[in-house]
């Protein structure tokens, strides 16, 4: 590994790499695993209806993890919130389009009732989770203010 990478000029501010922040990415990844598990479980049964209890449990776990992330984020001070929201807003637009396409496919395939509600809620969580992860990863290496 290049030692030059660690040669910080005397006038430079300390690197943001060493800043300790809550495990937002890891919690978000766990939430995504729960969402992916739920969608795979339901999709594996289509066009028939899967027993919903397992998907609802996974949905609850995913939602709880995302609420945890929101709480952890809200407690951050000295964070580049401007950059976070700038990146998250555009990412949300992109993932809303992708989630919309997936939702369209489910409706087109005659998914209805409680199954559609669970699928849609999972898609909504997916759509909100990714922008938070992208925004956080970008903003954690930006200086606040």
């Amino acid at each position: 590994m290049s030692t030059a990478a660690h040669d910080v000029p005397a006038h430079a501010a300390p690197s943001l790499v060493d800043r300790r922040l809550p495990p937002i990415t890891e919690i978000g990844a766990l939430s995504m695993i729960a969402i992916a598990g739920g969608v795979i479980y339901l999709a594996a049964y289509l066009p028939r209806h899967a027993p919903l209890w397992f998907a609802i449990v996974l949905l609850g776990v995913a939602a709880a993890l995302q609420v945890t992330n929101v709480i952890l984020l809200s407690r951050l001070s000295d964070f580049a919130w401007g950059r976070f929201f700038q990146v998250a807003r555009w990412a949300l637009l992109a993932y809303a389009i992708i989630a919309g396409m997936i939702e369209f496919a489910f409706v087109f395939d005659h998914t209805r009732g409680a199954q559609l509600v669970v699928m849609t809620t999972m898609l909504a969580l997916f759509m909100l989770n990714v922008p938070v992860l992208i925004g956080f990863t970008v903003a954690r290496y930006q200086r606040a203010g």
Binding site: A4, A5, H6, A12, S15, L16, V17, T25, G28, A29, M32, I33, A36, R83, V87, A91, N129, V130, L133, I134, F136, T137, V138, R140, Y141, Q142
Partner: peptide, 28 residues
């Protein structure tokens, strides 16, 4: 999907923001 969306894509965007700085931080 988990690898790409939770780790790769956020890192990709963050690297681009770092490279856009006047003095990118090599450690980041």
């Amino acid at each position: 999907a988990v690898i790409a969306l939770a780790y790769l894509e956020p890192a990709n965007v963050a690297v681009l923001f770092e490279l856009a700085k006047p003095e990118p931080d090599g450690r980041v």
